[in-house]
Amino acid sequence: MNTINLECVDSLSFYKNFQDKQSNEDTFRYEIMAPFKKMWDYLNAPMTPKSLGGYDVLMASEMLGIWTPRKSFNLIENQIDPLEQTNIFKEYSDVIETALARFTKINYQIPLDIIHLNILLGDPENKLLMASEGYSGFGGIPGFILLIVVPNDFNRIRLKSALAHELNHNIRFTYEPFNRGNISVEDYLVIEGLAEVFAESLYGQEFRGPWVQDYDEEEMSYTIEVMKDGRNVKGFEEVAAYMYGDEVATAQGYNPVGLSRNAGYTIGYHLVKAYLKNTGQTIEQATLTPTEIIVRDSKFFQ
């Protein structure tokens, strides 16, 4: 099996140096985000804007809920020590190595030489980030993982699980690449379901993310029917409304479809659980299984 190296950006030093006025906006661009340039290039986010006030890596970061030096340092000044005290900077390598070993056991040759990790303080003024208990992540491009955190009592003990979730995305997309323009509701349900069930398999249900909601029987039945009717809808902007629910869809300018927050994450989780139960497959095997087979054999929409 190939060896996958792991490189974690030293964001803690950046924040501490910023406190001492030794870091600035350019440091953020060229030290914190430069290791992710390939990812940002893929997302069409240049290191510097092409025109004054134009789209760049800082603007893209802020859209993801990341604090940048364009905002007041007072927003994160008291979050630096709590972030360090979560111990994620000491534990991230064990999380990733343990997760990768699960795929080695099923003889999947992960086509990556290196995984870049960036653990960043989130913007406490970002409403979407704070609505997900102050943490989020991005693992949509193989070889690059962002973990975004405003540390609190809820998320500080769930960061390992969140990292495993994002790593599962990385591995899934080496097998079945993410296609933003052609992604369907079914695709996205499976993607998020696989990631959360994988994280749960490593760290337990008690550390599950807030994106999986506890619906009562009536709401679950209703939500499944809405998903069933819309499961072949394609295109990220249309699919996002099914995944995130009406509140987020409205805030982001998508057309709401009559769903509660994180509906797609919840249904995806239960769909993947049903697939594993019906087939006896492991979550690692499922991660390397086509969407249509998972949906079909889950019998979730029958």
Rank of each mutant, 00 (worst) to 15 (best):
M1H: 05
M1V: 07
C8F: 03
V9H: 04
F14D: 05
Y15M: 04
N17C: 05
Q22C: 05
S23A: 15
Y30K: 14
W40H: 12
L43N: 09
A45N: 01
P49K: 00
L52D: 12
G54T: 02
L58A: 03
I66T: 01
S72N: 12
F73I: 12
F73G: 06
E77P: 03
E77F: 01
P82F: 00
V95M: 11
L121C: 10
G122W: 07
K127H: 13
M130D: 11
S136N: 15
F154C: 08
R156H: 06
I157Q: 14
R158G: 01
L159M: 03
A162Q: 11
E166V: 11
L167C: 10
N182G: 09
D187K: 12
G193H: 08
A199S: 13
E218W: 08
Y222S: 07
T223K: 04
I224K: 15
E225N: 15
R231C: 08
A241M: 07
A249W: 03
Y254K: 15
N255G: 02
P256H: 02
A263Y: 03
A263E: 05
A263G: 06
I267C: 09
Y269V: 00
N278H: 09
G280L: 04
G280I: 03
Q281A: 14
Q285S: 11
T287V: 09
S298P: 02
F300D: 09
Q302N: 12
